[in-house]
Design a protein around this nucleic acid. Structure first.
Lengths: 360, 360
DNA sequence: CTGTTAGCGCCTTCAC
DNA sequence: GTGAAGGCGCTAACAG
């Protein structure tokens, strides 16, 4: 059996509670005893049993992270950020992979609830209602998805898409296609919506925007989208994410077309591979690790407030809301590389100036 | 407060212990009561408090996984496999990322020990001694690293390298270079050793093997290695992993050389991106998720045996060793794609036949 | 500032 | 087959 608090107490000649305090709340104990106790504890290699502690305090010192697919580098990054920040705050993290299955998602979340202080749901595929239900059972924050009343950390998808469009317009593109991601994806909804809004605002101009539909968010989805993009007569295609964009690039080459001469292509995410291919991919960089870190901050905020709530009911509602940072949007950056350029076909540069001035 | 075993007991009109048994060891309780208790427990949404349970049983129902870098797709896959298998066995998994820092590695492992039933160290960067020290404190298994006496799950790196070499020789290559990974990497040591053995066995033939040295296991490392490979006069270069191989391919193109015509290139891992580039990468597929799953199996084996050990001392040593599968080597597969081909320079096909017959 | 007294929720001998 | 008690390791009130 491992060394317990009892052993330390006996060894250092004080009571169990003194040992407990010396370690957990050092300011409540006399300097001399504190140092002595801490020393013997260290010497004996004492490690408090977190289970016993949790049983009393109700807090476990760990959080849960639920992601759709650990094999996807996007989630790997988020996970790394979560992991790092949690560790820095003295928390450990349970990771669960749902395999993109919405039904097991809440199931998994529920099974975690009992053993963690809170849960981070990253890019959840489940319904709003289900998420709301979960929030009544445990502190919960959403990463890469927004839901009113639930602390959410998201990327500025709309801003990213607008940056891409402005870039393409500046280059002289007038027919631009969008290769969408999964219908159920919240971030795709965001991007598609921004694309449509952009389209509506531009009807008076000569800009034509074409929605190619929804595709699997993988390389293969891009392969599929590429043919549609070519057929549409667009001179540029905006991919839902980098993988889709990479698929588009590959299919174009296979068909004897080259980017950016025959078609400009853009992605989203800025995963490492986007710089491994030729042409390098113009894409929108998403600060994924930061999303992970901020999710942890938001969650610990929640956890902390919850535990204070019982001792201090006087905290004003609004202050609580502000502190919880119910919605935090992370800025994104356009990374212009080789896959976008001036369109070679007829048309070329024309009303660019007016278009950009039109408040885009 | 959540519903406790007490509530269930009161509600179903039996004692606490009966509820406990009905749920944990159903065979010890009468069918009627068992069903009744289980029903009310389910109805009330009762979830046993794992902390309380662990406090008594000494087992937590969770395992720890320590990896160098969650952002690396290789580890993402392993992690996914671990995660899936653990979940199937009713275990949850703590994941810790060491950021490739060997000093924090054992530190992290130690901090996990108290809250898990066992630990999986994946591709640990720390010393053999340190790992051995850890094994005295907790059940532990090694993934992607071998250490005598410690259950280890590894890939057949040597076999993979030999398969690559035979493939290249069959194509007619006579000067082959190896672009190594990090000096501290165990799997690189394996591959480099296999390469050297192969070289030694071939001195009597006309095969020349060139060791280019060690490189960072990333795209950039490959870029660096490519120039050395070209200068070496080799017609083929074997990369430590896919990322390195991709870097080599990119640099070759940048220098106006093309693969496989001017230089054949191979990788290791078979990460998804190896099919995203042109030419597609010839590489060795490593069953990463399987490594994760088998690590869990091995660990649970250990955990199980440990808990039996206290009640049953009669288990023969050797049987225990066999059951623990102290060393399990996973077969790997060569995936021949576009980045390897017949060398174009002088020489070409010649003594291929003899070489292959020489027991390679 | 320190020791004593109660449990946290559950499992596990023991009796019955 | 079931209930009653005791305790896992620790913290949180209380006294002193």
């Amino acid at each position: 059996m491992a060394v317990t608090i009892r052993d330390v107490a006996r060894e250092s000649g004080v009571s169990i509670s003194t040992v407990s305090r010396a370690l957990a709340s050092p300011e409540q104990v006399a300097e001399a005893t504190r140092i002595h106790v801490q020393a013997t504890a260290a010497r004996m290699g004492y490690r408090p049993n977190r289970n016993a502690r949790s049983l009393i305090t109700g807090r476990s010192g760990s959080i849960g992270l639920v992601v759709p697919d650990l094999e996807n580098p996007f989630f790997g990054s988020v996970c790394k950020g979560v992991q790092a920040r949690a560790r820095a705050a003295g928390y450990t993290v349970f990771v669960a992979d749902t395999d993109e299955d919405p039904t097991v998602e809440s199931e998994i979340a529920r099974s975690l609830i009992k053993q963690v202080d809170g849960v981070i749901l990253c890019s959840p595929r489940t319904t709003d209602d289900e998420i709301r239900a979960l929030t009544t059972e445990t502190p919960l924050v959403l990463a890469n998805r927004r839901l009113d009343g639930v602390p959410s950390i998201i990327f500025d998808n709309g801003g990213g898409l607008v940056a891409v469009m402005r870039h393409l317009i500046a280059l002289g593109h007038r027919r631009v296609a969008y290769a969408g991601g999964p219908r159920a994806s919240w971030s795709n909804a965001q991007r598609a919506a921004a694309f449509r809004v952009f389209a509506d605002e531009q009807v008076h101009g000569e800009l034509e925007l074409i929605d190619l539909g929804n595709f699997p968010p993988y390389f293969e989805g891009g392969v599929q989208a590429a043919d549609l993009a070519v057929a549409s007569g667009a001179t540029a295609v905006v991919g839902y994410n980098d993988l889709v964009a990479l698929g588009i690039l590959d299919r174009l080459r296979q068909r004897g077309l080259s980017a950016p001469e025959d078609m400009s292509v853009t992605g989203f995410d800025n995963v490492a591979v986007s710089t491994f291919v030729r042409p390098n991919l113009t894409t929108v960089d998403l600060p994924r690790q930061q999303m992970g870190r901020m999710s942890v901050d938001a969650l610990l905020d929640l956890v902390l407030r919850d535990s204070q709530a019982s001792t201090n009911e006087s905290m004003p509602e609004q202050a609580a809301d502000a502190a919880s940072g119910v919605l935090q949007e992370l800025a994104v950056d356009l990374m212009v590389r080789q896959s976008t350029g001036v369109p070679s076909g007829p048309g070329g540069r024309g009303a660019t100036h007016q278009l950009l001035d039109a408040g885009v």
